[in-house]
């Protein structure tokens, strides 16, 4: 086996950084899954995380809202901060962190509740609504921002699981934004959707960028190219290259990036 190449090429972020990861190493038991990751996620930008299966994209994404805490064998080292707040600090309230950093998963996973309750769940949990009217307002505006309101306004009390896949995913996005997070993490949010539903979610991602910071894992390079401003390419647990998306897809610096984006990995 050849030695791992730990080189990272970074074209520095222009503008404000929202999330800063410094020297992040992560192990599952004995196996190291992330090697000294240094990455800045720009505020009000979409950052795409790409790379071959098993390279550590989801692992890294889960570090950003401490989802890995639930995995007993997982050990993490290094610093991750949001707006300068160390998210691994002893004093940090993880429930509060997950309200600041929402997550949307690969498979739409609405709760087995009504559409309304799906979206109202977070605001209720975090005590964000002052009254019934206020809660209704939050639900409506979240569904509107997720581009779903028109399609579901007449059936808010029917189950979320009865929607189409694409609608379910937008419902999950509405649920994520209902608690007014600062950051939204998305792990392959479109992989279960058809092209039209995908296009709608992509358009939504682009709109959400105005108010949120977004990090998205995707296996579609075209999707990364379409929705993101910056792209980070991971390979074997190493952050190989990160910089403006256009550069990654037109003239990547590292040969590993080139091989991956041109489809040369075996």
């Amino acid at each position: 086996m050849t030695a791992l190449d730990f080189t990272t090429h970074t074209i520095p972020l222009e503008g404000k950084s929202k999330i800063s990861a410094k020297n992040v190493n992560l192990w599952y038991g004995e196996k190291q899954a992330l090697h000294n990751i240094n990455l800045e996620v720009g505020e009000n930008q979409v950052t795409a995380l790409i790379g071959p299966s098993g390279c550590g994209k989801s692992t890294f994404l889960r570090c950003l809202n401490r989802m890995n805490d639930t995995i007993p064998s997982c050990r993490i080292q290094g610093d991750i901060s949001i707006d300068g707040d160390d998210i691994y600090a002893q004093s940090l309230d993880v429930v509060h962190l997950r309200a600041r950093v929402g997550m949307v998963f690969q498979k739409p996973n609405p709760f087995p509740k009504s559409i309304f309750d799906n979206v109202a769940y977070g605001p209720r949990l975090h005590g964000l609504s002052e009254s019934k009217d206020h809660l209704e307002h939050i639900v409506k505006s979240s569904l509107e921002r997720a581009g779903l309101w028109k399609e579901v306004s007449d059936r808010l009390l029917s189950p979320g699981t009865g929607l189409s896949g694409g609608q379910q995913q937008r419902l999950c996005i509405a649920r994520a934004i209902a608690v007014s997070p600062e950051v939204i993490l998305m792990d392959e949010p479109c992989s279960a959707l058809d092209p039209i539903a995908t296009a709608k979610v992509e358009e939504l991602i682009d709109e959400l960028r105005e108010n949120f910071t977004i990090a998205i894992v995707t296996h579609s390079m075209q999707q990364a190219a379409r929705v993101s401003q910056r792209t980070a390419f991971f390979h074997l647990g190493v952050l190989v290259e990160n910089g403006p998306t256009e550069g990654i897809f037109t003239s990547p610096i590292d040969k590993r990036t080139q091989d991956y984006v041109t489809g040369r990995f075996g």
Binding site: Q222, A225, S251, T257, V261, T262, G263
Partner: peptide
């Protein structure tokens, strides 16, 4: 093929 990088260039 939706080419990228050197292939696209």
């Amino acid at each position: 093929r939706q080419p990228m990088a050197v292939d696209l260039r």
